[in-house]
Design a binder for these strands. Structure first.
Lengths: 201, 201
DNA sequence: AAAAAACCTTAAGGTAGATTAAGGAAATCT
DNA sequence: AGATTTCCTTAATCTACCTTAAGGTTTTTT
């Protein structure tokens, strides 16, 4: 018997997130609670750097992160932005325990909830619901990536920018255009030109 | 007690594939066998078309498939080739039961093994090993996609072509250059130029 | 509050890759 | 075996996007 449903907890946003898929009972919650660690992350602080193995599933409670790769020329390429109620993790590195090629960096002061691998495996074995939940998380990330790849092939920079504005209207107010340009795969100068063309049209 | 380990079966390549990750015992195999259907697929035949929900996990025993999207202008964009001992499935459509945006088409006469959703869920529940196996399948597909996206941002067409040749040396002998060009995100004419530049260098 | 850093814009000139068109070689179908 | 479709290549022209450079603005740090 636990009191978790009566006591507001740091992990409430995470429970709510899981319950978008499947309701959790008191047992599930009591299993989850001691395995989740809250961390405050400063602006420009990294939660993953190239060469490190990604040790955690990171759930963003509030704040905003960018996930990017640095190419041989030193240029950053944003592959994803992560805001409230989503996961900032290098799924490949985490599961295969390979050194990551990616950086995950806070763009704002942020709060995250971390689950490490041992605890995640424990949850899989003792609460099959989490198993399903994390499968769905990966599936969704997979679909997001696939759409992004398809778009990068078949759409122009302007089309991709308009699609971005439509899909993430709030984000475009929240982060600098340099970062959006990197996400779109174009230079900040060219994005500036696209924005000018949009206004003057 | 089953004799499955003595009798060669149509699903042997699939069992071998799973055992690259985790050994299966006789019980596991006896669960799998009746849930797998073999199909012969003709060249140019589709196993998935845009608008249909992807109903199966398709394991390629032999032959070769392309997974592609057709854009608004009617142009095909190959997102993946699938050959022996790999899966040709729209994972997003299968799990979410959404109409797919993709086509999966045989490029050669092929043989596949199909598992439908009901049977897959049955296996998940009754043999947790398969659960883990299919998670790993998705993870690997995810990593493949992520690398492809990163490359499409930071590498030139020539670099991407060379990387393709290195990663899939056999495939480049097996499929037409038009298809490789579509995979690389360039026109066949430009690929032809790249190939000429390679030789004359 | 001042200094430093990051960000945004404009514009000129350059390049990777698209488009169009057309002829020849392979593969596939009948 | 012949007919048809697909595939490959070359070359000229065109365009989306990059590069470099520079000045002004906003945000962040001290």
């Amino acid at each position: 018997m636990t009191l978790s449903h009566d006591i507001p907890s740091k992990i409430d946003p995470l429970i709510k997130h899981f319950e978008d898929y499947l309701p959790l009972d008191e047992f599930d919650k009591s299993m989850l609670l001691p395995r989740v660690v809250e961390r405050k992350i400063k602006r420009r602080q990294f939660i993953l750097q190239e060469g490190d193995v990604c040790q955690h599933y990171n759930f963003v409670v509030h704040g905003c992160f960018k996930i990017y790769k640095v190419d041989e020329k030193g240029v950053e390429h944003n592959i994803q932005f992560v805001v409230e109620n989503d996961w900032a993790t290098d799924i490949g590195s985490f599961h295969a325990e390979n050194p990551s090629e990616l950086y995950i960096e806070a763009m704002e002061p942020s709060t995250i909830l971390q689950i490490n691998k041992t605890d995640l495996l424990f949850l899989y074995v003792n609460c099959p619901k989490f198993d399903r939940n994390f499968r769905v998380i990966i599936e969704n990330k997979f679909i997001e990536l696939q759409n992004r790849l398809l778009q990068s092939f078949s759409a122009s920079a302007m089309e991709r920018y308009l699609a971005f504005l439509q899909q993430y209207p709030a984000l475009s107010q929240r982060i600098p255009n340099t970062q959006i340009a990197s996400y779109l795969g174009i230079t900040p100068e060219f994005l500036s030109k696209l924005r000018k063309d949009l206004v003057s049209k």
